[in-house]
């Protein structure tokens, strides 16, 4: 029987659903990463590993450990590392010809203000790495851009790279679509009157239809960053249509399951086990 590992740090509803589905298809080895010692090159004898750590550094390193054991990992350490960096993701999406919001990188407060002026206010300032809308700021005028940028400079490290994006006048919602092994089986609208629509920040989930154009975009976005199981965030621009914001390599899906009824964890488990059988 196939032996799979689930690498995790926080056991959320998503992980519990995955555990149930994986146990129906394989022998499951649960690895709670924060309380484990992972030896590079010597593992517990698993054929495949599903990476589910919420901590980015836990995720990349534990996926790397599983790869050193010869396990087939979903997602790979490399794709998790690439997708976590918004600038790298943007570069890969651009190279694949995928439409994204206009984005600029600036390396000082003054150049951040210049970039915002060029993009047209308001603009969105995001940390290079970050999730759930954390530390994302909507700046309506140059003084706000200056204030946020100055705070970022003070934080230092990666925050000193200013990632500035045009504000897309989306219709009070964005789209989170799941991609599993080259297919997009389900998507939701995240509806909110607030400009941050993440359900982790209070956005309401409603089922969304995955049309051919959206599916193509979602699948190609994941392929561009090497992600096999991903959650792709998409906004709808009134003139340009779909624009891809980012690809999430350890996606949450409980709200997608709840409102669409699609058994996302079952599809992920099936995909993982099928990779071993190949």
């Amino acid at each position: 029987m196939t032996v799979v590992a689930l690498l995790y740090d926080v056991a959320r509803l998503d992980e519990k659903m995955l555990i149930k589905e994986l146990r129906e298809r394989a022998r499951l080895h649960l690895i709670h990463v924060p309380s484990s010692v992972l030896e590079m090159g010597r593992g517990p004898g698993v054929d495949a590993a599903l990476e589910r750590c919420v901590s980015h550094y836990n995720a990349v390193s534990s996926a790397a450990a599983a790869e050193s054991w010869g396990a087939r990992t979903v997602n790979t350490a490399e794709s998790i590392a690439l997708s976590a960096d918004k600038a790298v993701t943007q570069a890969l999406l651009h190279r694949a010809g995928i439409p994204t919001p206009r984005t600029m990188l600036a390396y000082s407060v003054e150049s951040a203000v210049r970039a915002a002026r060029d993009l047209g206010l308001p603009v969105v300032l995001k940390p290079l790495m970050g999730s759930w809308g954390r530390l994302a700021a909507l700046a309506g005028d140059e003084e706000a851009v200056r204030a946020v940028s100055e705070h970022r400079e003070y934080l230092g490290g990666p925050y000193r790279v200013h990632y500035i994006q045009e504000y897309v006048r989306k219709p009070g919602r964005d789209i989170r679509a799941m991609c599993i092994g080259g297919e997009a089986p389900a998507a939701i609208y995240r509806v909110s009157s607030h400009w941050i629509t993440n359900t982790a920040r209070g956005g309401r989930a409603e089922p969304a239809r995955v049309d051919g154009e959206l599916e193509d975009l979602v699948v190609r976005s994941c392929e561009a960053v090497g992600v096999e199981v991903g959650g792709v965030d998409v906004v709808e621009d009134p003139e340009r249509g779909y624009l891809v914001l980012e690809v999430n390599a350890v996606p949450e899906f409980k709200n997608i399951v709840r409102v669409t009824g699609v058994n996302v964890p079952g599809l992920i488990a099936e995909y993982l086990v099928s990779r071993v059988r190949r």
């Binding site: 919420v54 901590s55 980015h56 790495m129 759930w132 954390r134 390599a249 350890v250």
Partner: peptide
């Protein structure tokens, strides 16, 4: 947060909260 103590028993500790590198 549920965790396993040194004896392998389930125990509880205060959850430290969302860390800087947490996300999807």
């Amino acid at each position: 947060e549920v965790y396993q103590d040194g004896e392998g028993r389930l125990s509880l500790r205060p959850f430290e909260g969302v860390q800087e590198d947490w996300g999807e």
